[in-house]
Design a protein around this nucleic acid. Structure first.
Lengths: 265, 265
DNA sequence: ATAAAATATTCCGCTGTGCGGAAATATATT
DNA sequence: AATATATTTCCGCACAGCGGAATATTTTAT
């Protein structure tokens, strides 16, 4: 297969001639919904994206015509429409690793009684791609597609431990810029996790995401260049003690990832 | 809330001045994955979208830089990446009706032993937005986000029965253009379904989507202008006979929709 | 009722984005 | 080596898309 590595983006001045700005802006409009499922008006989009009102008006018009946004004339608010979900589904269908991983995840979920999940990165969050619940119904209701913080969760830290030095420092810089205030504490948590990963092969979050929730995670690095993922197993501290994680669960989670590495790109 | 209805698109010649072409093209690239989860190269995109190779190159570069596409340098193929799934999740979160409907759907699924689902339209397909399985595990594995044909399924026909005359004839025209050949048979199936809807309030598909699969569906028309949805209940003909549907299940499905109409926009 | 505020859309001239054909580069194949 | 295939880069030009200002509509205030 013919592959020609892309050169340094052909810049003119300091604008990237190859970057299609209008596309990026339109997608930024779709992303504006990230918070809780509210409907948004053009004014909201303008405020959240920093784009001019006329630009927003044209972008929402376009997205509406294409079916990606539904429009309520009563309130003049938009919502995301079914075609967007359809794209998300294609995304899952295009990751063969997920199908392969499922039985292993289910096995560990059954054994531990805790949910086992796999996630990938979206900017400064981790997005759940697949999740298996144990037989125990008192588990956190984390759904596929939901996103949680990168910096304070085991799964986020495992991801950070699994990526290249370059990408990592880029992301850490962004987190620092975002968090300004609490950064020192966050930074220490992350470096502890890295150390744990280097020494034991897994990362922990003991009550750091939510009090009384413990979690352990391990990165998965596909051998083809596809994005790094991370698997976790976590739940109420009363059921999933730090000790149990360290003496048993962590090893099983590492086995899970090893097994998947053996059968997946 | 200030609402100003959009005028006729301000056309110049016959191009719509308000439609952002580059955005539409970029989204078309993302949609190119619709079929089974393969990885695609720039050539594939060009073939599927009809856009020039250089345009595709710029669009994929942009989508890659934004994180929506992952790139495998070995094979020079792209896949959809986690941020796309994240959008899909926001879509579900933004439809409050789905959360409200869930318990009613589960109730009917338990009673009938058949899966109950709700879907919305994406072009000429219906996309599953939520699904409840009955206790009986021998059911079709239709996942949220999957899409099925509009014209030959009960749920698609119910949707068609629920929308405005204008939109319907537009869609039917498109189906006709697409299906050319088998259109007459399809058309008859659709009009039978409309008749059934007018007379009884539900649509059927008896072995028409897949032999040995029966299904009944009812449209749901939100009172705020958000898109029409449709609920269905379907399964193996050996378990779900036409007779049972007509004498019992259909009425319960209609009740379900009536209940939801009472508590949802 | 009337005025004022808030929100959205349209208009329109100009800029620079994005387009596509052709050339260049890299890999795979014979 | 030479040929075939696939992808990216180059670059001039057209016109798509931008944004500020004007306009239209509804909501809130007086």
């Amino acid at each position: 297969m013919a592959v020609r590595p892309r050169k340094e983006p052909s810049k003119v001045g300091d604008t990237d001639r190859d970057f299609v700005v209008a596309l990026g802006r339109g997608l930024e409009v779709l992303r504006a919904f990230r918070k809780e499922g509210e409907a948004l008006g053009n004014g909201d989009f303008a405020a959240r994206t920093g784009l001019s009102k006329s630009t927003i008006s044209r972008l929402t018009y376009t997205l509406h015509r294409l079916g990606y946004l539904s429009f309520n004339p009563e309130t003049a608010r938009y919502r995301l429409a079914p075609p967007v979900l359809s794209l998300g589904y294609s995304c899952l269908a295009g990751m063969p690793t997920l199908q392969l991983a499922k039985p292993y995840m289910q096995e560990l979920a059954n054994y531990s009684g805790m949910p086992v999940a796999v996630a990938g990165r979206d900017r400064l969050t981790m997005v759940y791609l697949e999740r298996c619940r144990g037989p125990n119904p008192v588990t956190l209701a984390i759904e596929v597609g939901a996103h949680i913080k990168l910096a304070t969760t085991a799964i986020g830290r495992a991801y950070l431990a699994g990526i290249s030095e370059d990408l990592r420092s880029e992301i850490l810089q962004e987190i620092q810029d975002h968090e300004g205030h609490g950064w020192p504490a966050i930074e220490r948590g992350i470096y502890d996790a890295f150390e744990s990963h280097a020494k034991h092969g897994y990362c922990l979050s003991i009550g750091e995401w939510k009090t009384d929730v413990n979690s352990v995670a391990v990165p998965f690095i596909p051998s083809d260049g596809s994005p790094v993922l991370a698997f976790n197993c976590g739940g109420a501290a009363s059921h999933l003690s730090r000790d149990w994680i360290e003496t048993d669960i962590s090893a099983r989670l590492k086995d899970l990832v090893r097994n998947i590495s053996a059968i997946s790109p």
